[in-house]
Design a protein around this nucleic acid. Structure first.
Lengths: 160, 160
DNA sequence: AAAATCGCGAAAGATTCTTGCGCGAAAGCC
DNA sequence: GGCTTTCGCGCAAGAATCTTTCGCGATTTT
C-alpha cells in the first residue's frame, strides 16, 4: 500500500483534479496531468486500491431538494468511557438526519452535521431524539445560515 | 429549472446512487434505477443543469496523505454587521487549512472545518492567523478523534 | 375524440475504457 | 564500467460506454 512518500507530482495532480471533478473522464484527466490515458488510469486504480481515494460522491444541493435546515450539534456526554463513546457513535448511525458525525476532544464529545427538511423536524429531532438519548449531557446547536467555503478535504498548496 | 416537485421516484434513486458512487457508469446507473441508458443520462444532465447535482468529488483519505489533524473551529466575532461577516467569510477562503466554512447562528458566528498536516501547524494557524484576524473575538476548537459517520449531504428515507 | 406533449427505449456512430506489449530510462549488482 | 533488473510510459486494438437520433406508446390537453 503506497504511502505519502510514494506519491509523485503527477499523483498529486490527479488527486487535485479528481477532488475538483470526480466524474472527469480518464482521457481528460490524463491531458490535464500531462501523461497518456493508460498510465493515468493505472495510477487512479492504484490510488483507489491504496485507500487514498476513498470513493466518489455527487454533491447534492440540499435546499433544492427540500432540505432547508443544515445545522451542527455539539454533544457532551455524562460519561466518556470507551463503551459509552461507541454506544453513542453507533446511535448516530441510526439517525438519518445526522449526515456526518465526528468524535472530538475539547468542550464536547461529538460533533454532528445534520440536515432536515424544516426547522420543526430538526427541533423535534433535537428534543425527542438527541437530548433524550442515554448518557447525553449537553446539546449545543448552531444553525447554518449559508455555506461560505466548500473545498474538498485536502489542500494542495505547493504539491503540483 | 426543475424544483423538488418535478422529481419522481427514479430521480431520487439516481441521486441516491450517485451520492454513493459518483463515478458509476451511466449503464450501471441505468440498470440500478430500472430504465435504459439514454433516458437515464438525460435525467442526470437535467439534474446537473438544474443545480440539484452541484458537482462530483473524489473523497480523499486525509491521514494517508499526511494530513493528521482534522479539527473544527467555532468563531465568534466582535461585530456582526453584514460587512464584517462578509469580510471574515472572504478571509476564510484565503486559508488553505480551512476546507469548508459555514456562517452559523447560535453561540458562534462561523464554523470552520480545518485540516492540517500536524498539530503544530494547526496551532500556529489558530494563534497567528485565526485568533489574530481582525474582529475575531472567541475561538473554540474541537480536534477530531475519528470520523464516526460519513454519508452524503442528503438522506433518502422513503424517497425510493 | 382528436391533437399535442412527454418520456421511454432501440439503433448506430463517436468516444472512451481497458488490456497487452514493446521501448527507454533509472536503479541495483557484479 | 558495464550488465541486468525493474519500472513506468505510450502505442495499438478490442471491448465497453457514451451520446444522439428517431419512432412508439401513454398520458394530458383541448
Amino acid at each position: 500500500m503506497p504511502l505519502k512518500a510514494d506519491l509523485d507530482a503527477i499523483d498529486w495532480k490527479i488527486l487535485r483534479e479528481l477532488q475538483n471533478d470526480g466524474r472527469m473522464t480518464n482521457v481528460e484527466l490524463s491531458n490535464r496531468v500531462g501523461i497518456s490515458a493508460p498510465p493515468c488510469l493505472r495510477r487512479v486504480r492504484r490510488l483507489e486500491e491504496a485507500g487514498i481515494i476513498r470513493g466518489y460522491r455527487a454533491l447534492l444541493n440540499a435546499p433544492a431538494l427540500g432540505m432547508d435546515v443544515v445545522a451542527f450539534c455539539l454533544i457532551g456526554l455524562h460519561h466518556q468511557a470507551d463503551a459509552e463513546l461507541k454506544s453513542f457513535a453507533e446511535r448516530t448511525r441510526g439517525w438519518p438526519i445526522v449526515r456526518d458525525a465526528w468524535m472530538v476532544s475539547g468542550e464536547s464529545d461529538f460533533l454532528l452535521h445534520c440536515v432536515a427538511s424544516d426547522l420543526g423536524t430538526f427541533q423535534t429531532f433535537v428534543i425527542e431524539e438527541l437530548a433524550s438519548a442515554p448518557n447525553v449531557d449537553t446539546v449545543r446547536t448552531a444553525l447554518t445560515i449559508r455555506r461560505v467555503k466548500d473545498e474538498g478535504l485536502v489542500a494542495f498548496e505547493g504539491k503540483s
